[in-house]
Design a protein around this nucleic acid. Structure first.
Lengths: 208, 208
DNA sequence: CCAATAAATAACTAACAGGTCAACTATAAG
DNA sequence: CTTATAGTTGACCTGTTAGTTATTTATTGG
């Protein structure tokens, strides 16, 4: 064989970053190559188009970053409801950090790109759908368990997870548009209200 | 004077339609001109750039369509809570109609474009913010009244309106991405739960 | 150390997009 | 019926973008 390369990974990382900082449509292949320090010839050695790269980049993002993070945050060692509130808090923190680092709230690349290109680029849209679907499953499972535990009112977990993803992604998009992470501050509270969490502490601990 | 023209209106309408069907970034000035049946020279007679046109188009959309519609739906002649549920139902209906007409769920152009270009095109983003802000005020006022009426639990109307806009726009974006208006079916129910609406009918009517 | 081949590169083309402009045309007002 | 002028037009220019290719380079396993 011959030499190995990291150019494909650099391209995927650059694509994610640029699409996140700007948008899918605003980023050109040349932009991506420049950021990744890869020549265009090499780009076409690894990928057939911008959309093709974007699909690979989203999957890579999921596998390398999001899945491990979600697995940890939604670990069975954590109370079901606490998984959700912890996750909601982490969204606020993350967006606050990106605002500090980039001067901009950047939101969620998967959701942004997914809804941006939903009427074009079917393969890319399918990948975005897939990833959003995976996230939904974490919510569903936590909600289902929380109902079983009695931490939240009985409900249809699928329905509630859908409402939750709406609330989350809607507010994250709002925060991006307003460039203000503070819109996400009360997200955990809003989430708990949406989920009809029961009045906090269990009865036997309530009289201190 | 000399002849009058509707070219600017045609351009604004074409721009809204195309941005809605695709995205801001995917639409070129040539596309807009073709759709509007206007030559590029005329485009630059009325507008200085695509972003400039988009700003005018969003404002035009608001003034000519959205504001009248919102004023009617949030009319003082309607019960405060019914304003909100009626509005939420209408979202489902509208998206179902666009799916039937275009074969695609297209979502909300203001929110889509606003979050797409939020890190570029500051003037356009400012206009999107402005319009979203105006919608928020309808929600706030209805929520405030509903609290006063006792139709929903006491709360901070500003905060609740923010949560509501998140839920709405998040789910609309989800419906667009999934190309499935059914995601919006339970939006009125979800909205009522988020708002903590009180158990429906007043007490004196509850025993049938 | 050498050969096979994965990876990198420069240099290129063709199409397209944004933007300009001088000349032209319709029409409303007098 | 003029005529001033808002409005229209097509031709043109320029930079950018996607996509291609022939050639070179590095490296790794034998």
């Amino acid at each position: 064989m011959s030499r190995t390369s990291t150019a494909n990974v650099r391209l995927m990382a650059a694509a994610i970053d640029l699409m996140w900082e700007e948008s899918y449509g605003a980023v050109t292949i040349d932009d991506i190559c420049t950021r990744a320090e890869v020549k265009k010839g090499s780009f076409y050695y690894y990928f057939t188009s911008k959309a093709d790269l974007a699909v690979a980049a989203l999957e890579h993002l999921w596998a390398e970053e999001w899945k491990p993070s979600m697995d940890s945050q939604f670990s069975a060692t954590v109370e079901p409801l606490a998984r959700l509130t912890g996750f909601l808090e982490s969204i606020y923190h993350k967006q606050t950090l990106t605002k500090a680092r980039f001067g901009k709230v950047l939101g969620c690349p998967v959701y942004s790109v997914g809804s941006e290109i939903s009427t074009q680029e079917t393969a890319l849209c399918a990948k975005a759908r897939e990833i959003v679907g995976r996230k939904l499953r974490y919510y569903e499972s936590a909600i289902q368990e929380a109902v079983a535990t009695g931490a939240i009112e009985p409900c249809d977990p699928v329905q509630k997870a859908l409402a939750l993803v709406g609330l989350i992604e809607g507010l994250v998009g709002y925060a991006r548009m307003m460039n203000d992470p503070e819109a996400l501050r009360e997200l955990p509270v809003m989430g708990l209200e949406l989920l009809k969490a029961k009045p906090a502490a269990p009865a036997e601990l309530s009289r201190t």
